[in-house]
Amino acid sequence: NRLGIIYEIQGMKAVVLTSEGEFLIIRRRKDMKVGQQVSFENEDIYNV
């Protein structure tokens, strides 16, 4: 599992900021809110 803070939500995608200072786009889940810490898997990351 990886951890990140939700920075922005766009439709079915969420932008998270990881503890390494990396911004990633992941698959959104219904319970996500901006500012929330979430765990996610590598499979949830969109390749940009």
Results as ranks from 00 to 15, higher is better:
residue 1 N to Y: 15
residue 1 N to G: 10
residue 1 N to P: 12
residue 1 N to R: 10
residue 2 R to C: 10
residue 3 L to R: 11
residue 3 L to V: 12
residue 4 G to P: 01
residue 4 G to R: 01
residue 4 G to Y: 04
residue 4 G to S: 02
residue 4 G to W: 03
residue 5 I to Q: 05
residue 5 I to M: 10
residue 5 I to H: 06
residue 6 I to C: 06
residue 6 I to N: 00
residue 7 Y to G: 02
residue 7 Y to R: 12
residue 7 Y to N: 05
residue 8 E to P: 00
residue 8 E to C: 10
residue 8 E to F: 14
residue 9 I to G: 00
residue 10 Q to L: 06
residue 10 Q to I: 13
residue 10 Q to Y: 13
residue 11 G to C: 15
residue 11 G to T: 05
residue 11 G to M: 06
residue 11 G to Q: 09
residue 12 M to Q: 13
residue 12 M to V: 09
residue 13 K to I: 07
residue 13 K to L: 05
residue 13 K to W: 14
residue 13 K to C: 14
residue 13 K to P: 00
residue 13 K to G: 04
residue 14 A to N: 01
residue 14 A to Y: 11
residue 14 A to C: 10
residue 15 V to Q: 05
residue 15 V to K: 13
residue 15 V to S: 09
residue 16 V to T: 02
residue 17 L to T: 04
residue 17 L to C: 05
residue 17 L to F: 13
residue 17 L to H: 06
residue 18 T to N: 03
residue 19 S to V: 05
residue 19 S to R: 14
residue 19 S to I: 10
residue 19 S to W: 07
residue 19 S to N: 12
residue 19 S to H: 09
residue 20 E to S: 13
residue 20 E to V: 08
residue 20 E to A: 14
residue 21 G to V: 01
residue 21 G to A: 03
residue 22 E to Q: 14
residue 22 E to S: 11
residue 22 E to M: 14
residue 22 E to R: 13
residue 22 E to L: 13
residue 23 F to R: 05
residue 23 F to M: 13
residue 23 F to S: 05
residue 23 F to K: 08
residue 24 L to N: 02
residue 24 L to Q: 05
residue 24 L to P: 00
residue 24 L to H: 03
residue 24 L to Y: 09
residue 25 I to F: 12
residue 25 I to T: 11
residue 25 I to G: 03
residue 26 I to W: 01
residue 26 I to E: 00
residue 27 R to Y: 12
residue 27 R to Q: 04
residue 27 R to K: 08
residue 27 R to P: 03
residue 27 R to L: 14
residue 27 R to H: 03
residue 27 R to M: 12
residue 28 R to G: 11
residue 28 R to E: 01
residue 28 R to L: 15
residue 28 R to K: 12
residue 28 R to S: 14
residue 28 R to P: 03
residue 29 R to T: 11
residue 29 R to Y: 12
residue 30 K to Q: 14
residue 30 K to A: 15
residue 31 D to I: 05
residue 31 D to W: 12
residue 31 D to Q: 14
residue 31 D to C: 15
residue 31 D to S: 15
residue 33 K to P: 01
residue 33 K to M: 08
residue 33 K to H: 08
residue 33 K to E: 10
residue 33 K to R: 12
residue 34 V to N: 03
residue 34 V to A: 05
residue 36 Q to F: 11
residue 36 Q to G: 03
residue 36 Q to H: 11
residue 36 Q to K: 09
residue 36 Q to T: 08
residue 36 Q to N: 10
residue 36 Q to D: 07
residue 37 Q to E: 15
residue 37 Q to K: 09
residue 37 Q to T: 12
residue 37 Q to V: 13
residue 37 Q to C: 09
residue 38 V to A: 05
residue 38 V to C: 08
residue 38 V to N: 01
residue 38 V to Y: 11
residue 38 V to H: 04
residue 39 S to D: 08
residue 39 S to A: 10
residue 40 F to N: 01
residue 41 E to A: 13
residue 42 N to K: 08
residue 42 N to G: 06
residue 43 E to H: 05
residue 43 E to A: 06
residue 43 E to K: 11
residue 43 E to D: 12
residue 44 D to I: 04
residue 44 D to W: 03
residue 45 I to L: 07
residue 45 I to S: 04
residue 46 Y to K: 09
residue 46 Y to I: 12
residue 46 Y to T: 10
residue 47 N to D: 11
residue 47 N to C: 15
residue 47 N to T: 11
residue 47 N to G: 11
residue 47 N to Q: 10
residue 48 V to P: 15
residue 48 V to Q: 14
